[in-house]
Design a protein around this nucleic acid. Sequence first.
DNA 1: CAGTGGATTTCACTTATTGAAACTCTCTTT
DNA 2: AAAGAGAGTTTCAATAAGTGAAATCCACTG
Lengths: 229, 229
Amino acid sequence: MAESSTRTVERALVLLGAVCGAGSLTLADAAREADLSASTALRLLRTLEGTGFVRRDTAGVYRPGLRVVQLGAQALGHESLVSLAEPALERLVELTGESAYLSVPSHDGEGVYLAMREGTHPVRHASWVGRSIPLAHTAVGAVLTGGPPDGGFVVVRDGVEADVTAVAAPVSPGGRTVAALSVVVPSYRITEAGAHRIGSLVAREAAALLAGPATGAVPVPEDLTGEPA
Amino acid sequence: MAESSTRTVERALVLLGAVCGAGSLTLADAAREADLSASTALRLLRTLEGTGFVRRDTAGVYRPGLRVVQLGAQALGHESLVSLAEPALERLVELTGESAYLSVPSHDGEGVYLAMREGTHPVRHASWVGRSIPLAHTAVGAVLTGGPPDGGFVVVRDGVEADVTAVAAPVSPGGRTVAALSVVVPSYRITEAGAHRIGSLVAREAAALLAGPATGAVPVPEDLTGEPA
DNA sequence: CAGTGGATTTCACTTATTGAAACTCTCTTT
DNA sequence: AAAGAGAGTTTCAATAAGTGAAATCCACTG
């Protein structure tokens, strides 16, 4: 019984994810998405509805419920890493004018933007907190999955997203990488030298992130991987 | 079978709510909170863990997972905030006769009106959804950028727009301000006392926005700012 | 070192979940 | 206008799946 899992719950969570991912889904679409029979999907969605995790609008379409928003906001509030990273993101934007992100590995071989700060250029990269990003062929993925990069940062030009160059550095307190700090720039605007300049900035901020601005008295969140070491 | 509900799923969701509400819980605490046997709680938490809804830190303590943050952010972004706010805006207009707005922070020091409801007075403030508003020297800006205001709301008379008084309150589930609810009144029509009256109304609606009916099974976490006055 | 409390596993019991099928509605097509 | 297609909903018998008490292990603590 190594893999204890509750099928019912898993299915319900898949449905919840489908509804939240799509923004709105009909019963039939949700059932298809989760690969369930209509009756099962209906029952599970009703349970989710009864607990406020989804709601039905006037047309009967399923939408994310306020409970999701509520829990998400609470979870964000408890994320100490986010608040620690905010000043760093702000500095990066100030120094580069480009959008800056904090991301962490998610559970399914992807990453998630946990915090962001938009750049100041009229043409800038734009994304959102909560967005999933692949780890393959991305700068963020390289620093999250690989070892410490040479020079302290990774540059990926036109990786998964066309026309943008991403510069990422690992946040690795005690040698374990728990997050990535990155700056994303429209490729036409950046030279190799410029990428290097930004790289050093990102690497410096990433290194300082959990070293603590004060005298190391700052509580270190060592819990982001979920993988006991 | 009018009330079709899935006990397993309900229990799992209660556990999820408990973990998110507390920020971190041990297995035993979670089981107690959800009134479950340890073995059942363990099984359900494992399922939640496997899907990224909770995670265990190095000490083995359960914490909200990234999936929660992700879905919450998606839900927020997907204009569900707007539909959640619509009834509140309507009530505000009904009670005050003045125009009411929902706004969120946009980028570089601005905000955007996400939803609005025009007042009923012949002379009223008029704006439009999608309009950008500065965050400096505005009531909306004060609640979006500053901490929780004393009394739960902010009044700004003749700020950026001449001749109008704005009353705003933060929507802050879990202590994180994600939006502002505001009422804008022609200044000639409002007294200090009137502004206070409207202020309490706005603050109450803002606080209730994401506190919502929820499950009823989960106690309201103590870190929700802006308690209903 | 005995004792307490948490985490984990096992297992027999049976409860609660399942999905095909039937039925109703509402559009769309012919 | 009748026939058809597809969504939402309900029913119900089969049984797969969840349950929790008890046993085990482990880390502390008095």
